[in-house]
Amino acid sequence: MKGVQLFLVASAFLAFAWSLASASDPSPLQDFCVAINDTKDGVFVNGKFCQDPKLAKAEDFFYSGLNIPRNTSNPLGSTVTQVNVAQILGLNTLGISLARIDYAPYGGLNPPHTHPRASEILVVLEGTLYVGFVTSNPENRLITKVLYPGDVFVFPVGLIHFQLNIGKTNAVAFAGLSSQNPGVITIAKAVFGSNPPINPDVLTKAFQLDKNIVTSLQSRFWWDNN
């Protein structure tokens, strides 16, 4: 019962918080949009084409199952369940989305990443999380906090941030994001797991590492927890 009550409180909080904010997404909703002359072949126009509102139904604004714990038995010890415009078509043009993050006991990590198109507000439902973000150049200041159930933390748009479960039990958090399609760039995966690989000479100099270390990192499988 306690978990259900906390879930309802968290849901109400996120709804209230985003009702106070104006819709985001004034910028592109995907990495790029190649223009076409014939719209019959089009899929995206800074989002999605809009359906005739007369055809809208309840299912267009509905998603179920966010209360179900996710499997965290992966190398990162975390799983992110996204609820964006891909899952709820009715989110199109509304500038908001949601995510559930599950963390394995002590060490479950949502690794350093950015959302290029959204700020994030995180509320902890269960467990103890060490969270933080890094400010932009030249300061690159690390701002961190330990969060407990009921605590809330904000990650500004575009900044590298992370969450680590430092407790002995599972942890669960919910995040609201100011975009229908926030995007995720996981730093390690993007840099060392790009396809095709970045020239090792670039990474050797950028990270000031031995080239053998760089090629070793590039040869690994970088897990995606989304």
Rank of each mutant, 00 (worst) to 15 (best):
Y148E: 13
K145P: 09
Q82S: 08
G150F: 08
F155R: 13
D102C: 04
Y130V: 01
L98C: 04
Q82P: 10
P112C: 09
A86D: 08
G167A: 10
A118V: 03
I88E: 04
P105A: 13
L89Q: 12
L122S: 15
V157W: 00
L122T: 09
Q87F: 06
V154W: 10
T79F: 12
S97N: 05
T135C: 08
T114I: 14
I121G: 09
E126W: 03
V152P: 09
L142V: 15
E139C: 02
N74I: 11
L147N: 05
Q82I: 12
A104V: 06
D151M: 14
V85E: 11
I101C: 05
L109D: 07
P105Q: 12
L129E: 11
L89D: 06
S97C: 14
E120H: 08
D151R: 07
T114H: 00
E126Y: 06
P149F: 02
Y148Q: 15
I160G: 02
G127W: 00
H113G: 08
L125M: 14
T114W: 01
G90N: 04
N92K: 15
E120D: 15
I166C: 13
E139V: 11
N74G: 08
R117H: 07
I160P: 11
V83M: 08
T144R: 13
T114E: 00
T93W: 05
V131R: 08
Y148C: 12
V154S: 15
G108E: 15
N140Y: 15
P156N: 03
I166L: 06
L122R: 10
P116G: 03
I96K: 14
V123E: 06
S78K: 07
Q163P: 10
L125A: 07
N92L: 14
P75Q: 12
P105E: 11
S119E: 05
Q163D: 11
G77W: 09
Q87K: 15
V124T: 13
A118P: 07
H113C: 07
T79A: 06
V154M: 15
L98V: 03
N140M: 02
P75C: 11
V154C: 11
P111K: 00
E126R: 14
G132Q: 00
S78F: 13
I160C: 10
G107L: 09
G108P: 13
L76Y: 03
V134R: 05
G167S: 14
T79L: 13
L89M: 08
V134Q: 06
E120K: 06
T79I: 03
K145L: 14
I121D: 09
F133S: 01
G108D: 05
F133Q: 00
D102V: 06
I96S: 08
L164G: 02
V85C: 06
G90I: 07
I88Q: 03
N110V: 01
L129N: 12
G158E: 03
T93P: 04
T128E: 15
N165K: 04
V157A: 07
L125N: 12
R141H: 06
G127V: 01
V131S: 14
I96Q: 12
A99C: 15
F155S: 09
R141V: 05
T144H: 10
L76W: 01
S78P: 13
P116T: 02
P111Y: 01
V83G: 04
V83L: 03
S136A: 05
S136Y: 03
L125D: 03
T128K: 13
I160E: 06
V83F: 04
V152D: 07
H161L: 07
G167T: 10
V157F: 02
L94P: 01
V124Q: 07
N140D: 00
